[in-house]
């Protein structure tokens, strides 16, 4: 008799603890409103890729300015910028990007020597297939969306800066105001609505092309099948998804 009571007592204790646990789970669980959004399955149909045609870029900096206002990029940091390479007759390489080219380029950088080859290279996040920044994020705040865009969860990022260190292309920065890592989102809010990213939208020379790599008839695939292109730092195995047409060996 005594034994049974004891057993019941244990049972009661177990159930009540479980009940409290489950109850508190529901009590503390945050409820978030559902937002109208492309479903996971819809997003799987996309694989956003990007082309930079360095032969067409004129270094006007429109993309940098457009990106800045579109994404409220803090002063002194850049989600995209334009580099200028000047190679002189004596094989010296001059590289510069004054203020990320947000005010364009004022005059030739190499003043003393004769420039034999010069060109602009716009840079942005490569949205690598094997992104080191996602690999190193300790909390899963850097992630790859189902449509293969490398994004930062600003509500989850702890701001450790490890991803900034891991990115070989220097496209990440710590947004000091928000205390979180920040980077190019490929204007995720725009491409979801069928609009081009701000930089593509603002390019006056069509030097930037974006599109769905999973669609064999997309413009980006047509261009990739026609033109010869290179990747930035391919030896690091990041498998970048930003293709550079007319890439020079000096560009890193």
């Amino acid at each position: 008799m005594e034994k049974i009571e004891r057993r019941q007592f244990i049972k009661l204790g177990l159930f009540s603890t479980a009940g409290i646990l489950v109850g508190s789970f529901f009590a503390f669980a945050k409820t978030e409103k559902d937002i109208e959004v492309n479903s996971y399955e819809d997003l799987l149909k996309f694989d956003w890729g990007y082309i930079v045609d360095t032969t067409r870029c004129i270094g006007c900096g429109s993309c940098v300015r457009a990106c800045k206002v579109e994404n409220e990029v803090p002063e002194g940091y850049f989600r995209t910028w334009v580099e200028r390479f000047e190679i002189t007759k004596d094989e010296t390489v001059y590289v510069d990007s004054p203020k990320g080219a947000i005010e364009g380029f004022n005059r030739d950088n190499a003043q003393t020597a004769e420039i034999v080859k010069a060109f602009f290279v716009p840079k942005l996040c490569n949205h690598c297939y094997d992104a080191p920044c996602i690999q190193v994020c300790p909390v899963g705040a850097s992630y790859r969306s189902p449509d293969k865009v490398v994004l930062v969860d600003k509500e989850h990022c702890v701001g450790c800066g490890y991803c900034v260190q891991a990115c070989p292309y220097g496209v990440r920065y710590i947004n000091e105001e928000k205390g979180v890592a920040d980077k190019c989102t490929l204007c995720y809010h725009r491409i979801q609505k069928g609009l081009a990213p701000a930089c593509v939208n603002s390019c006056p020379r069509n030097a930037r092309i974006y599109g769905n790599l999973k669609d064999p008839n997309s413009e980006i695939n047509k261009v990739l099948h026609q033109r010869r292109y290179g990747l930035l730092k391919p030896d690091l195995g990041t498998n970048p998804k930003c293709f550079y047409i007319g890439l020079d060996k000096e560009v890193k």
């Binding site: 492309n38 206002v69 994404n71 899963g140 994004l151 969860d153 989850h156 995720y188 809010h189």
Partner: peptide, 24 residues
């Protein structure tokens, strides 16, 4: 809430980003 729904990240973050205002 939505952490780990489709991988090691917060699935709701995707929709939060989509809500960003279009400027250009």
């Amino acid at each position: 809430d939505s952490f780990g729904e489709h991988g090691q990240y917060r699935w709701n973050a995707v929709s939060e980003l989509q809500k960003q205002e279009i400027v250009n």
